[in-house]
């Protein structure tokens, strides 16, 4: 069910467009990518998508690498590089161009408003992503208590998230 390059070019364009809406990081656009690769195109299953997102989260480095992991599953190394570049180039160019501008007082007020207004949206979108991924984990209804437990651990302790994820893997091996 791997996509051909005829499908990948439009997918790259879609990633480039989505990246411009990824305020707060790549995780915010995962529900949208899930819709495309799982629901609409059937390029991978729910459980595959969920597992690959988890892999990326448990790895060192920026979260955006989830795009490379999904790309690899779709076609291999070249596809991974392609999806990664599609997703990263537009926002990187934008950020670089903005470093050439200088701010003043007006700029400061604008930044304050942008931050104040957009961060509640980011919070809601990250929650939405967590919720959708819980449903897509492949663990069925058992996913909800596992996810709740992981969230509780992460909020209540300062445990490295990698341990939390691995513990959930052990739980999965035992009860699923």
């Amino acid at each position: 069910m791997s996509p051909s390059w005829d499908d990948l070019w439009p997918f790259g364009a879609r990633l480039a467009l989505l990246s411009m809406f990824s305020i707060g990081g790549a995780n915010v656009v995962l529900p949208e990518i899930h819709r495309h690769v799982v629901t609409d195109q059937h390029w991978m299953s729910d459980a595959q998508f969920g597992s690959l997102v988890a892999l990326a989260q448990a790895s060192p480095g920026p979260n955006v690498l989830v795009i490379a992991v999904l790309g690899y599953q779709l076609g291999g190394m070249l596809t991974a590089a392609f999806t990664m570049l599609s997703f990263m180039t537009p926002t990187s160019v934008l950020t670089y161009l903005l470093t050439r501008l200088r701010g003043g007082e007006r700029h400061e007020r604008m930044v304050r408003i942008l931050k104040l207004g957009l961060s509640p949206l980011t919070a809601g979108l990250v929650l939405a992503n967590g919720w959708i991924l819980t449903g897509a984990s492949g663990a069925g209804y058992a996913a909800y208590p596992i996810a709740l437990g992981a969230a509780g651990l992460a909020l209540a302790t300062r445990l490295n998230p990698v341990w939390v994820i691995l513990a959930c893997g052990v739980v999965g091996a035992i009860i699923l």
């Binding site: 597992s51 919070a123 967590g130 819980t134 992981a150 969230a151 994820i165 893997g169 999965g172």
Partner: peptide, 18 residues
């Protein structure tokens, strides 16, 4: 099965971040 557990856990961490 391990991966299913891991996915649920990763989703939970995302919820914690939210």
């Amino acid at each position: 099965q391990v991966f299913h557990g891991i996915s649920a856990g990763a989703a939970g961490l995302m919820i914690a971040t939210g």
